[in-house]
Amino acid sequence: MGAGHAHRLYWAADSPVHRLPAHCKLVAVLAFVLLVVATPATAYAAFLGYAVLLTAVAAAARVPPALLLRRLLIEVPFVAFALALPFVAGGDRTEVLGMSLSVSGLHGAWNVLAKGTLGVAASVLLAATTQVWALLIALQRLRVPTLLVQIASFMIRYSDVVVQEMARMRIARESRGFTARGPRSWKVLATSAGALFIRTYERGERVHLAMVSRGHTGSMPVLDQQPAGRAAWGTAVTLPAAALALCLLGWWTR
């Protein structure tokens, strides 16, 4: 891997959304998702409003719509279940295009689909406008337990290293004429997984050794203390504030 790549999910651009401190964005997205989930499923106008809000954020962040839509595909395995609901749920039934569907199932499917899509879209926007390391610092700043942040940070740092190691092992296996086919190859694959585990474990020990050599005693030093200004919070809070209005409206007109 050469120099200068950001993380795959990051969409490099210079926009007001990119410039916002990561912890403000994180709080805004979390609040937005909670409000979306708290909205009654039948408040269709509110969901339309949420979608408009996210579109506005995407436009402000200069994230191309095509990119956003493509990344929404990650949702597909989860919504497959939602699509099955109208066929399998009980209760009153209705005719759509000659098929007998459950009314409560249709509502359930809509509920999962709408809320899921909005939540994923908000997360995709957060990931596209925020560097991974900035998110880690944001978690630290939001007082998420240090141990959890450390685990996440090591996972992100070393996942590439482990994946590359795995790829090298696969190439080395295949170079000696191995093809993974059928149960007979399972033994080889299991041994490879074991070897990979031991290598990773040993790397963990070496990393720890290097940390101890630089005076590590168990706690991570807190670096990069840049408090977010009132203006940043003011901008960030726009999204959840608008969402709150929509959510209340949804309950009101139910």
Binding site: V132, L136, S153, I156, R157, Y158, V207, L209, M211
Partner: peptide
């Protein structure tokens, strides 16, 4: 191995 030494984001 610098990967052992460099672990911060």
């Amino acid at each position: 191995d610098p990967d052992d030494q460099l672990f911060m984001p």
